[in-house]
């Protein structure tokens, strides 16, 4: 479903020449699984997922989503993904219904099937009571629901969640995690980035630990615990990042 090969993204930096935000990142995610990208802030998770959603272009490497190339076939890629991040807000001056309908139409859905799909979505996400509420009047939780509805209205095979729980209270975050699990059970391929260990433990089938644009480790939780001799994801995470820091310090000194 998702094939990422040696994805690199660097920016011109006045001070350092180039700044490498993403350094030869490779991973693949399959249908029916939640693939977790785990890393501290600034690790390159958002950059990687923005490349997958085609709003950024990689400096080198390739990303294939559902068989389409993110660089040369961006419009087709966008047709086949649903993207939710802390940066994708809802329109203030649109109601929940209008917003989801608008995106459904942009995804090329016909009016009739769209209405049926929306009715069932609004039921499932318990959104019927906010149907005619303007975005400006919604609480954070309501907005998150609208975002989910907006991202899955066209029933995409691939879903990308970029730090989607940041800023949500426990109840709303939990509801979102449940929704993600449900989507996995429907056979969707989900990429889920977070810096919260508990979420990764709860949800992800496989996890990649990313730091400073590089992948430090990848595997199922069991595989990771076994390889690195830890029983707690948080300890493992700290351990890896610390080691990486030491390694970089040695390189810098040399």
């Amino acid at each position: 479903m998702i094939e990422v090969r040696s994805l690199t993204k660097s920016y011109a930096d006045l001070r350092r020449g180039t700044f490498v935000a993403l350094d030869r990142l490779s991973f693949s995610a399959r249908a029916g699984e939640v693939y977790g990208l785990l890393g501290p802030n600034g690790a390159g998770k958002t950059t990687a997922l923005r490349i997958l959603s085609t709003v950024l272009q990689p400096t080198s490497g390739s990303a294939i989503v559902n068989g389409f190339d993110c660089v040369t076939q961006p419009a087709l890629v966008r047709h086949h993904i649903g993207f939710i991040s802390a940066n994708t807000a809802v329109y203030d001056r649109m109601t929940a219904w209008e917003m989801v309908e608008y995106f459904g139409r942009l995804y090329g859905m016909e009016k009739e099937p769209l209405r049926d799909r929306m009715e069932s979505l609004f039921d499932r996400l318990q959104m019927q009571d906010i149907r005619d509420l303007l975005g400006a009047k919604m609480s954070t939780g309501m907005k998150q629901k609208v975002s989910i509805a907006r991202a899955i209205v066209h029933d995409p095979p691939v879903l990308i969640f970029d730090e989607a729980t940041s800023g949500l209270d426990v109840l709303v975050a939990r509801a979102l995690l449940d929704a993600v699990a449900e989507l996995r059970d429907q056979g969707k391929c989900v990429v889920f980035s977070t810096h919260i260990m508990r979420e990764a433990e709860r949800l992800c089938d496989r996890v990649a630990i990313v730091h400073q644009g590089r992948m430090l480790a990848e595997g199922t939780l069991e595989e990771l615990f076994e390889t690195y001799g830890h029983t707690d994801l948080e300890d493992l995470f700290f351990d890896l990042i610390q080691k990486q820091g030491e390694k970089m310090a040695v390189v810098d000194n040399q």
């Binding site: 085609t54 419009a75 966008r78 994708t88 807000a89 809802v90 975002s147």
Partner: peptide, 14 residues
């Protein structure tokens, strides 16, 4: 500023 532009950019609209 309102963060809705990225929402639009990840839609299939070119």
């Amino acid at each position: 500023e309102r963060g809705t532009l990225e929402t639009l950019l990840v839609s299939p609209a070119q």
